[in-house]
Amino acid sequence: MMTITRRAATLMAAGTLGLGGLAVAAPALAGNGPFGPGPSSTTIANPGYGMGSGHRMGSGYRTGPGDGVCDRLTVTAQQGTLSAAQKATLVAMAQEEKLAHDLYAVFAARYDAVVFDNIVRAESQHQTAVRTLLQRYGITDPTANQPAGVFTDKAVQATYDKLLAQGRQSLAAALAAGQQVERDDIAALKAAATGLTAPDVKQAYTNLLAASQRHLNAFTRWATR
């Protein structure tokens, strides 16, 4: 059994955006957030990533470069224009980031594997970033006010349910599910960059792609331990 402290920390991480709340300060909502205009670069820092965690079997694994830690997301580019198709893609990105966050939150609570704790925090930041872009471009957020594990897109819901059932079988199965999510995200982000001219969205997708690649590497390392 995990300690009460660890379980509480996991639930706090899972609840950051799992209920559709926007964990952004008031200035961000006014356009000065992760992707708002300004003379200097905007960063989204990842606090608390130096936390260690003991593996359930006593292996003593601790947070490190192989555990999916993302230092920060930085966007210095300005707002551009998006086509209707690109706006739809941004909506899909919001769904994908929520799927990853909600799925990893369940696995973080179920398994004593610090890789899920770390990556679910990163996914919270990714959700915030995408939601801020949605607001900036005047696009309705499909994840707003949606409980954890609930999606407005039926295909996304079916994917989530399938991966959740898979990951509940074992830690190995959960890591495999995480790898699949990140592979799908990488493919989607690469496709989304095609023909994209909006500087801020393009830079955001580049950052998210790099993060997904780190997450995939982290899940792969844990799967081979």
Rank of each mutant, 00 (worst) to 15 (best):
M1V: 15
T3N: 05
T3L: 14
T3A: 07
R6P: 03
A8V: 15
A9I: 14
L11I: 13
A14Y: 12
A14I: 10
L19P: 08
G20E: 00
G21L: 15
L22D: 13
L22G: 02
V24F: 09
A26G: 13
L29G: 03
G31C: 04
P34R: 03
P39N: 12
P39R: 13
I44A: 14
I44D: 11
G50Q: 06
G50H: 02
G52K: 04
G54D: 14
H55R: 06
M57E: 12
S59M: 02
G60Y: 01
R62F: 10
G64N: 01
V69K: 00
V69W: 00
T76V: 06
L82W: 04
S83G: 00
A85C: 03
Q86H: 00
K87Y: 00
V91N: 00
A94I: 07
A94G: 13
A94W: 12
E96Q: 08
L99C: 07
A100S: 12
L103E: 07
Y104W: 06
A105S: 14
V106K: 07
F107P: 01
A113S: 09
A113P: 05
A113L: 14
I119P: 13
A122W: 00
H126I: 06
Q127M: 15
T128N: 15
L134I: 02
Y137F: 02
D141K: 01
P142G: 10
T143M: 11
T143E: 03
A144F: 13
A144E: 07
Q146C: 13
G149K: 04
G149W: 03
F151E: 08
D153F: 04
T159S: 05
Y160L: 08
L163E: 01
L164F: 09
G167S: 06
R168N: 14
Q169H: 02
L171H: 05
A176P: 03
A177Y: 00
V181M: 00
D184G: 11
I186Q: 12
A187N: 02
L189N: 12
K190P: 05
K190M: 05
A191I: 08
A191R: 11
A191H: 04
A192N: 00
T197N: 11
V201T: 06
Q203H: 10
Y205S: 10
Y205P: 00
L208N: 00
L208S: 09
S212Y: 05
S212N: 08
N217M: 07
A218F: 11
A218D: 07
T220R: 03
R221N: 10
A223L: 08
A223C: 02
